[in-house]
Simulated assay, not measured.
Amino acid sequence: MIIEDIKVGRITVPLKKPFKTKHGVYNFSNEVVVKIYTSNGILGIGSAAPAPRVTGETESSIVGAIKHIAENIKGLDLTCFQYVLKVMDECIRGNNSAKAAVEIAIYDLWSKHLGVPLYKLLGGFNSSIVTDMTIMDDAKMENMVNAAYEATREGYTHIKIKLGNNIDSDFEKVKFIRRAIPKGVKIRVDGNQGWTPKEAVRLIKKMEQLDLDIEFVEQPVKAWDVQGLRFIKDNVDTMIVADESVFGSPEAFRVIQDRACDLINIKLMKCGGIQNATKIYNMADTMGIRCMVGCMLESKIGITAAASFAASKGNMIIADLDTIIYFADDPIVGGVTFEGNRIMLPEEPGLGIKEIRGWEEIL
């Protein structure tokens, strides 16, 4: 199974409503999509979501990196699976989203070659996972409260609230959302690197004192501030999640060694793909730290790959893979399906993706 050709294109998908983050407002999802063609006629598909403020990669840099990777792996035999991945990883430094896109396509090819779904190739612990629903930060608190209430009416049992702009208003938002939704629904708080360690401890303790039933607080401090992360973990009862503090396995080793978090949020676009995600998971699992799987603003290609990884492992908490719910149209035929808050993995070989509508070739 020789790699004969690699083509790169893009898909642009409009969103139902603007997707607001701390760093901007997005009306479209732009994604780089890779197609790898092999000598035995099998096609592998992968994708990368540009997130320059998180991974440092733009569409142009991703395309350029994939072009370089393609020059190094064309002609290689995919039955030498680990060798191909090693060449891909070592031929260029960094560029994790670009590597993730190529690697997802390689894993898609390999599982198709073996005739099994990707989630089974990776371990097959579950055939479905549960995702939370993200509530975007909004200056108008009532918009966030209404969004959280509607999510619970749609069956979501876990709500993730994006915060990190102002510690006082952040507390009020969590408090009013808690009052508006059923008591059994878990709340997750994403600080988006927005607080100092002392601010975070003060805020979390206030939430604990009011019994707001917060499942965890994600990345309350700057990504580089691992000691601050540990300070928070050691001074509150609520679980603390490392997200931007962990890109690859070296960062994961550091936060695990420093006992700086209770959970690690693994994203394929951050760490460079499934193999590096597995390294992070195995380290965390060995040390009794649970993991969750998150995503960027990704199409069903990336979500299927991430969900396949999450479903394959036993030491996962509920995932954060809800972004395709925001899409006004789904150009991906096949892949995962949603049943309320549950993501069902496909039983077809690989990612189970049959067609990509609107794919525009770049190179």
Rank of each mutant, 00 (worst) to 15 (best):
G273R: 06
E251H: 15
C271P: 00
A277P: 02
K267L: 12
L268K: 03
D258C: 11
I264H: 06
N276P: 00
Q275I: 13
A277I: 10
V255G: 04
E251Q: 15
F247N: 06
D262N: 13
R259V: 12
N265P: 02
E251T: 10
N276S: 09
G248D: 07
R254N: 13
K279N: 12
G248Q: 04
C261H: 04
E244T: 02
I256V: 13
F253G: 09
S249A: 14
L263D: 05
K279E: 14
S245D: 02
I256T: 08
D262T: 00
S249W: 04
G248V: 06
A242R: 02
V255A: 01
G272M: 07
L263P: 10
E251A: 10
Q275K: 15
I274N: 00
E244M: 00
E251I: 05
Q275T: 13
N276Q: 15
A242D: 00
V255I: 11
F247Q: 05
A277T: 04
G272I: 10
M269K: 02
S249F: 10
D243V: 00
A260Y: 10
F247I: 10
G273P: 02
E244V: 03
E251R: 11
I266S: 04
Q275F: 13
V246Q: 07
L268H: 02
A260L: 07
S249Q: 06
L268C: 05
K270L: 08
A252E: 04
E244Q: 07
E244R: 00
I264F: 11
I274K: 00
P250Q: 07
M269A: 15
L263Y: 14
N265Y: 13
I256D: 00
D262L: 02
Q257S: 14
K279L: 12
A260G: 07
V255T: 05
I274P: 01
A277V: 08
N276W: 06
S245W: 14
K279R: 15
K270C: 11
A252Q: 04
I256G: 02
K279I: 08
S245G: 08
D258G: 03
R259N: 15
P250G: 00
A252K: 04
F253Y: 13
R254I: 14
I266M: 10
F247R: 09
Q275R: 15
I256A: 04
C271R: 04
S245L: 07
P250F: 08
V246E: 06
L263K: 05
F253I: 08
Q275Y: 14
D243T: 00
G273Y: 06
D243C: 01
R254F: 13
Q257Y: 15
D262M: 01
Q257P: 11
K267S: 11
